[in-house]
């Protein structure tokens, strides 16, 4: 057995990166101290390529960095104005597509969608607000499912499972009618730790652990002081 893993080299915006075969562009970027904005990605979970915010350009073609493996000699374009603007446009689209009223949301300050909007300096979405009619659904006794804020990232569908590996959340319908559904009995039976994890998995305020809202004061929340992604950029030194 060779002691070192095989290494492949590629570039992101001209910066030389090293990674091992099989790693996605997004993971490889992270390991090299480069932040590629993402929303539906969750470390260790099978990527879904659902939100497309991590879109990068390689050889003139657009691809989701969370699903595309890095390859030898690849020249990835990431932090360039037109791609950043497209990502910003996706964030804006998500804001008008649902009902995202940050001042009333328990997740405000810890919300990844909001954090991306801050990072991209979104002052107002460029698209007209849709104000869709959606509901708030109890998901068993511990969790609340707030459909107004759901961005259909499928993190809950992919990542929340019972001890015997049953999925708790599922997706109904497709495209603009897509909706997250929950198994009430399984959701009620989730142990406290997992119920909290379900809330943490949700990037927005769509899955909420009941009775714990607004626990962290303004100023001490995750994205109050530092933009999303700064921990990756800082790690590079």
């Amino acid at each position: 057995m060779p002691k070192t893993k095989p290494v492949l080299t590629f570039t992101i915006d001209g910066k030389k990166c090293r990674t091992s075969p099989g790693q996605t562009i997004l993971e490889a970027a992270k390991a090299n101290g480069i932040y590629i904005p993402s929303l539906c990605y969750w470390e260790g979970m099978k990527p879904a390529g659902a939100c497309r915010i991590c879109t990068v350009r390689v050889g003139g073609r657009y691809m989701a960095a969370c699903t595309q493996p890095a390859a030898e000699g690849m020249a990835v374009e990431n932090d360039v104005p037109d791609i950043q603007d497209m990502r910003k446009a996706i964030v804006e689209m998500l804001f008008v597509e649902g009902n995202h009223m940050c001042p009333t949301c328990e997740k405000s300050g810890n919300c990844e969608l909001q954090a991306l909007a801050y990072r991209f300096q979104m002052l107002v979405p460029r698209f007209p607000f849709q104000f869709p009619v959606r509901e708030v659904e109890p998901a068993g006794t511990k969790i609340l499912l707030e459909h107004n804020r759901c961005v259909k990232c499928l993190r809950c569908v992919r990542g929340v499972r019972t001890r015997d590996n049953k999925t708790v959340f599922g997706a109904l319908k497709r495209s603009k009618d897509k909706k997250i559904a929950v198994d009430q009995a399984l959701a009620s039976a989730l142990p406290e730790k997992q119920a909290r994890q379900a809330m943490d998995r949700c990037p927005v305020g769509s899955i909420l652990r009941k009775e714990v809202g607004f626990a962290v004061p303004i100023g001490k929340r995750k994205y109050d002081k530092k933009p999303i992604g700064s921990e990756i950029e800082k790690a590079e030194g």
Binding site: N99, H100, M101, C102, P103, V124, F129, F131
Partner: peptide
């Protein structure tokens, strides 16, 4: 200048929009 959440996004009053 549009000042604040309600001016920019409708805000709390827009919760009646549906």
């Amino acid at each position: 200048i549009s000042l604040g959440e309600c001016a920019i996004m409708g805000g709390l009053p827009a919760m009646r929009n549906g």
